[in-house]
Protein backbone atom coordinates (compact mmCIF):
# COMPACT_ATOMS: atom_id res chain seq x y z
CA UNK A 1 0.00 0.00 0.00
CA UNK A 2 1.19 3.52 -0.69
CA UNK A 3 1.75 5.89 2.19
CA UNK A 4 -1.20 7.91 1.03
CA UNK A 5 -3.48 4.86 1.25
CA UNK A 6 -2.04 3.91 4.65
CA UNK A 7 -2.68 7.41 5.98
CA UNK A 8 -6.23 7.37 4.67
CA UNK A 9 -6.95 3.99 6.30
CA UNK A 10 -5.32 5.07 9.57
CA UNK A 11 -7.59 8.12 9.63
CA UNK A 12 -10.53 5.72 9.59
CA UNK A 13 -9.06 3.96 12.60
CA UNK A 14 -7.41 1.06 10.76
CA UNK A 15 -4.80 -0.14 13.25
CA UNK A 16 -2.98 -2.40 10.78
CA UNK A 17 -2.43 0.54 8.45
CA UNK A 18 -1.21 2.71 11.31
CA UNK A 19 1.11 -0.04 12.55
CA UNK A 20 2.58 -0.32 9.06
CA UNK A 21 3.40 3.40 9.16
CA UNK A 22 4.96 3.00 12.62
CA UNK A 23 7.00 -0.03 11.53
CA UNK A 24 8.36 1.85 8.56
CA UNK A 25 9.48 4.95 10.43
CA UNK A 26 10.01 4.18 14.09
CA UNK A 27 13.69 3.41 13.52
CA UNK A 28 14.12 6.83 11.91
CA UNK A 29 12.29 8.68 14.70
CA UNK A 30 14.18 6.81 17.40
CA UNK A 31 17.57 7.36 15.74
CA UNK A 32 16.76 11.07 15.41
CA UNK A 33 15.98 11.44 19.11
CA UNK A 34 19.05 9.40 20.03
CA UNK A 35 21.21 11.94 18.25
CA UNK A 36 20.35 14.64 20.77
CA UNK A 37 21.97 13.16 23.88
CA UNK A 38 18.72 13.00 25.77
CA UNK A 39 18.23 10.45 28.51
CA UNK A 40 16.42 7.30 27.38
CA UNK A 41 13.26 8.48 29.16
CA UNK A 42 13.35 11.83 27.37
CA UNK A 43 14.09 10.19 24.03
CA UNK A 44 11.04 7.99 24.62
CA UNK A 45 8.93 11.08 25.43
CA UNK A 46 10.13 12.92 22.33
CA UNK A 47 9.34 9.86 20.23
CA UNK A 48 5.87 9.56 21.69
CA UNK A 49 5.17 13.26 21.15
CA UNK A 50 6.28 12.91 17.54
CA UNK A 51 3.81 10.10 16.89
CA UNK A 52 1.01 11.90 18.75
CA UNK A 53 1.78 14.95 16.62
CA UNK A 54 1.38 12.84 13.50
CA UNK A 55 -1.98 11.49 14.65
CA UNK A 56 -2.99 15.08 15.31
CA UNK A 57 -2.06 16.12 11.76
CA UNK A 58 -2.95 12.97 9.90
CA UNK A 59 -5.81 14.73 8.12
CA UNK A 60 -3.57 17.54 6.91
CA UNK A 61 -0.41 15.85 5.66
CA UNK A 62 0.21 17.62 2.36
CA UNK A 63 2.72 15.31 0.75
CA UNK A 64 2.51 11.70 1.97
CA UNK A 65 5.71 10.68 0.20
CA UNK A 66 7.60 13.13 2.40
CA UNK A 67 6.16 11.70 5.61
CA UNK A 68 9.60 10.48 6.78
CA UNK A 69 11.07 13.96 6.50
CA UNK A 70 8.02 15.40 8.30
CA UNK A 71 8.50 12.93 11.17
CA UNK A 72 12.24 13.60 11.37
CA UNK A 73 11.68 17.37 11.48
CA UNK A 74 9.02 16.97 14.16
CA UNK A 75 11.26 14.70 16.23
CA UNK A 76 14.12 17.20 16.00
CA UNK A 77 11.88 20.02 17.22
CA UNK A 78 10.58 17.91 20.10
CA UNK A 79 14.14 17.11 21.17
CA UNK A 80 15.18 20.76 21.11
CA UNK A 81 12.06 21.60 23.08
CA UNK A 82 12.90 19.02 25.75
CA UNK A 83 16.46 20.25 26.00
CA UNK A 84 15.14 23.78 26.50
CA UNK A 85 12.52 23.04 29.13
CA UNK A 86 14.23 20.36 31.10
CA UNK A 87 17.93 20.66 31.27
CA UNK A 88 17.18 16.97 31.64
CA UNK A 89 19.76 15.82 29.13
CA UNK A 90 22.63 13.54 30.00
CA UNK A 91 25.82 15.00 31.34
CA UNK A 92 28.29 14.89 28.48
CA UNK A 93 30.43 12.19 30.05
CA UNK A 94 27.61 9.68 29.86
CA UNK A 95 27.75 7.83 26.62
CA UNK A 96 23.99 7.17 26.27
CA UNK A 97 23.42 5.85 22.80
CA UNK A 98 26.95 4.51 22.64
CA UNK A 99 26.62 2.43 25.77
CA UNK A 100 27.24 -1.23 25.39
CA UNK A 101 25.00 -3.49 27.49
CA UNK A 102 26.87 -4.62 30.57
CA UNK A 103 25.50 -8.11 30.98
CA UNK A 104 27.95 -10.93 30.48
CA UNK A 105 28.16 -12.35 27.02
CA UNK A 106 28.94 -15.96 26.23
CA UNK A 107 32.57 -16.52 25.19
CA UNK A 108 31.76 -16.95 21.54
CA UNK A 109 30.58 -13.37 21.48
CA UNK A 110 33.74 -12.01 23.03
CA UNK A 111 35.28 -11.02 19.73
CA UNK A 112 32.19 -9.17 18.59
CA UNK A 113 32.01 -7.42 21.93
CA UNK A 114 35.65 -6.39 21.76
CA UNK A 115 34.85 -4.88 18.40
CA UNK A 116 31.71 -3.27 19.92
CA UNK A 117 33.79 -1.63 22.60
CA UNK A 118 36.27 -0.36 20.05
CA UNK A 119 33.38 1.04 17.96
CA UNK A 120 31.86 2.66 21.02
CA UNK A 121 35.12 4.37 21.97
CA UNK A 122 35.89 5.36 18.41
CA UNK A 123 32.39 6.82 17.91
CA UNK A 124 32.69 8.84 21.10
CA UNK A 125 35.74 10.62 19.69
CA UNK A 126 34.56 11.66 16.25
CA UNK A 127 32.41 14.58 17.38
CA UNK A 128 28.72 14.95 18.05
CA UNK A 129 27.74 15.90 14.50
CA UNK A 130 29.41 12.79 13.09
CA UNK A 131 27.97 10.52 15.77
CA UNK A 132 24.47 11.77 15.04
CA UNK A 133 24.84 11.46 11.30
CA UNK A 134 26.24 7.93 11.48
CA UNK A 135 23.56 6.87 13.96
CA UNK A 136 20.93 7.96 11.43
CA UNK A 137 22.69 6.52 8.40
CA UNK A 138 22.92 3.19 10.17
CA UNK A 139 19.21 2.98 11.06
CA UNK A 140 17.62 -0.38 10.38
CA UNK A 141 15.60 1.12 7.54
CA UNK A 142 18.19 3.38 5.91
CA UNK A 143 16.69 6.89 5.67
CA UNK A 144 16.84 9.06 2.58
CA UNK A 145 19.16 12.07 2.51
CA UNK A 146 16.07 14.26 2.69
CA UNK A 147 15.04 12.52 5.92
CA UNK A 148 18.54 12.79 7.36
CA UNK A 149 18.65 16.48 6.46
CA UNK A 150 15.32 16.99 8.23
CA UNK A 151 16.50 15.11 11.31
CA UNK A 152 19.71 17.12 11.61
CA UNK A 153 18.61 20.48 10.25
CA UNK A 154 21.36 20.07 7.64
CA UNK A 155 21.26 20.94 3.91
CA UNK A 156 20.90 17.78 1.84
CA UNK A 157 23.93 18.74 -0.25
CA UNK A 158 26.16 18.65 2.82
CA UNK A 159 25.26 15.10 3.81
CA UNK A 160 27.31 13.16 1.26
CA UNK A 161 30.59 14.95 1.95
CA UNK A 162 29.98 14.92 5.73
CA UNK A 163 29.21 11.21 5.61
CA UNK A 164 32.48 10.50 3.78
CA UNK A 165 34.45 12.64 6.21
CA UNK A 166 32.87 11.05 9.30
CA UNK A 167 33.40 7.50 8.04
CA UNK A 168 37.01 8.32 7.25
CA UNK A 169 37.50 9.74 10.73
CA UNK A 170 35.98 6.63 12.25
CA UNK A 171 38.04 4.29 10.11
CA UNK A 172 41.25 6.06 11.05
CA UNK A 173 40.56 6.17 14.76
CA UNK A 174 43.28 4.35 16.74
CA UNK A 175 40.63 2.15 18.42
CA UNK A 176 39.60 0.60 15.12
CA UNK A 177 42.99 0.64 13.46
CA UNK A 178 44.49 -1.37 16.31
CA UNK A 179 41.83 -4.05 15.86
CA UNK A 180 42.40 -4.38 12.15
CA UNK A 181 39.62 -4.08 9.59
CA UNK A 182 37.82 -7.24 10.73
Amino acid sequence: MTLEALIRSALDGDEAAWNAIVDRFDGLVWATTRGYRLSSADAADATQTTWLRLVEHLDRIQDPERLGAWLATTARHECLRLIRIGGRELPSDEAGVFDVPVEDAPDRRLLARERDRALQRALAKIGERCQTLLRLLASVEPPSYEEIGAALGMPVGAIGPTRARCLEKLRRSPELVSLGTG
Binding site: G13, D26, A44, W51, V55, D116, Q120
Partner: peptide, 24 residues
Protein backbone atom coordinates in the same frame (compact mmCIF):
# COMPACT_ATOMS: atom_id res chain seq x y z
CA UNK B 1 28.83 -2.85 10.38
CA UNK B 2 27.47 0.22 12.21
CA UNK B 3 23.94 -0.83 11.29
CA UNK B 4 24.47 -4.22 12.94
CA UNK B 5 26.12 -2.57 15.92
CA UNK B 6 23.28 -0.12 16.58
CA UNK B 7 20.64 -2.77 15.97
CA UNK B 8 22.30 -4.85 18.68
CA UNK B 9 23.17 -2.08 21.14
CA UNK B 10 20.39 0.49 20.70
CA UNK B 11 17.29 -1.04 19.11
CA UNK B 12 13.98 0.80 19.35
CA UNK B 13 12.75 -0.22 22.83
CA UNK B 14 9.57 -2.30 22.81
CA UNK B 15 7.59 0.17 24.95
CA UNK B 16 8.55 3.00 22.57
CA UNK B 17 7.08 1.12 19.62
CA UNK B 18 4.04 0.21 21.70
CA UNK B 19 3.46 3.86 22.58
CA UNK B 20 3.78 4.80 18.90
CA UNK B 21 1.20 2.17 17.97
CA UNK B 22 -1.12 3.29 20.74
CA UNK B 23 -0.95 6.91 19.53
CA UNK B 24 -3.66 6.17 16.95
Amino acid sequence: ELREYFARVDPVPGPVTEAARAAL
